[in-house]
Design a protein around this nucleic acid. Structure first.
Lengths: 249, 249
DNA sequence: CGAAATATTGCAATAATTTGCAAAGTTGAT
DNA sequence: ATCAACTTTGCAAATTATTGCAATATTTCG
């Protein structure tokens, strides 16, 4: 058994049971407690768990939240992303907002699609920094760790001085009367500015967020040109939006 | 059996089992473990898998997972980073330039060290976006894919408006007469601006870059306060720098 | 075709890493 | 305070890596 398998096993078990002990791991992995201790120490040094006497417990849960949210409803997000990809033309300049659905879009961009992507989201940037055809522009600023986006003056300033073809906005909450809203003030501020610099605004969202609302408003529903969801376009859920003249995919 | 067949077999097996070991492959392919090891090394160099002790595991092309980081960090860079960490105090604001040595520093920051890190490097940002104590500020701009840093107006503007305690600069080439130089013009421009906004400038480098030069100059040697290398401080290699009054660690 | 250059493979010696063990400290619950 | 449970440290044995080398195989040319 490879060491890496042991490490995976320990992390998985920790996730399942919220704790692991040296004894139980030693038995399950068929190695000495010393080895388990050393494995746990390695993981602790990389911030993946917290070493305690006799075993380990999970680290702060919010650390993994973004990466875990990516895999939440992954299938639905891929459906949404697939539809959104149809809106892209080579040579365009697009804005990719933070959010796990926009991340999925970024991960599905064809290797030969030559577009310019502007983003304030770090995982998206890390993903596209290796993309062979995409030109990548990153908004600067203070990093908001919960959603892994940059915020503040620097980011706002960049978007104010910019004009792009399409903005893909990841939605926290979408309601046909309230519009788009989110649960962080600074994030709402940035999103709002992103919308304003785009000729076309496309909201991408899984349908569980449709009809919900959060404290901080990003924009009115009328500012949207298109909504992309995994729902079929004639679903009742989407009627209020089509009635307002918003394209629905 | 053709070599290509072996490579395909290894990748297929890796896909099926999420791991391969030298022993199992050696048996299945009827070649020595040495050959399997060399095959795996070849695949690893092409980024198709990750070589680990005793075998290989799949490689996620996107983000740097902890398992990959462990193997990525080179011993001599760790030595340099260890020394550099000694210069840090809680509460400080530091600048981390792009480069693998600065990346190593970032990956070794203690989890409870509360400092503010400003960087223009995407892998460093991706790494520290999950750090529990570090406040992260990212310089915006166009991403230069070769070294994964942001460059251009936005980044320059941010550094011009900033004053930090210490700048850790990753060195491409260091020469006691020429100073620091690099092989990309835009990069030199940004590095140069980063230096200027710091009260203390620390060059971090492995000793293979000492005494070399590249086309584009970043700064004079006199602008450096400290050089950190893995070399012992009384090495002949470092004499020219101590003679100029530069601290050497 | 055939000889030289190049690549591949297995082997052996050496180096590096990992693992388990035991002795000597720490910790913390009763 | 005591004692069992856990940690730490140093060490030796086992495992895996690296390197140089020789024996084949393969390709490249004239």
């Amino acid at each position: 058994m490879l060491k890496e398998e042991r490490l995976d096993f320990i992390l998985q078990r920790l996730k399942d049971n919220q704790k692991v002990t040296l004894g139980e791991l030693s038995g399950a992995l068929q190695v000495s407690e010393d080895t388990v201790r050393r494995d746990i120490e390695l993981l602790a040094n990389n911030g993946l768990l917290m070493k305690v006497r006799g075993g380990a417990i999970p680290h702060s849960p919010n650390v993994h939240s973004f990466k875990e949210r990516i895999h939440l409803l992954e299938h639905n997000k891929k459906q949404v992303a697939e539809k959104a990809l149809g809106l892209l033309q080579p040579g365009q300049v697009i804005l990719l907002d933070g959010g796990t659905t926009t991340y999925t879009i970024a991960s599905m961009l064809p290797h030969d699609l030559a577009i310019t992507v502007v983003t304030n989201n770090i995982p998206i940037a890390a993903l596209l920094a290796d993309h062979p055809s995409v030109e990548l522009i990153l908004a600067g600023g203070k990093v908001f760790k919960n959603s892994q986006v940059t915020m503040g003056m620097e980011a706002l300033r960049m978007f104010r001085r910019m004009r792009v073809d399409t903005c893909f906005i990841g939605v926290c909450s979408l309601h046909h009367e309230i519009g788009i809203s989110t649960n962080d003030y600074g994030e709402a501020e940035v999103k709002s500015e992103m919308l304003k610099c785009a000729n076309r605004v496309v909201a991408v969202t899984t349908n569980d967020k449709i009809g919900t609302a959060e404290p901080y408003k990003v924009c009115d529903i009328t500012e949207l040109d298109t909504i992309v969801t995994e729902e079929s376009t004639d679903s009742d859920l989407l009627k209020p939006y089509t009635a307002l003249g918003i394209k629905v995919l």
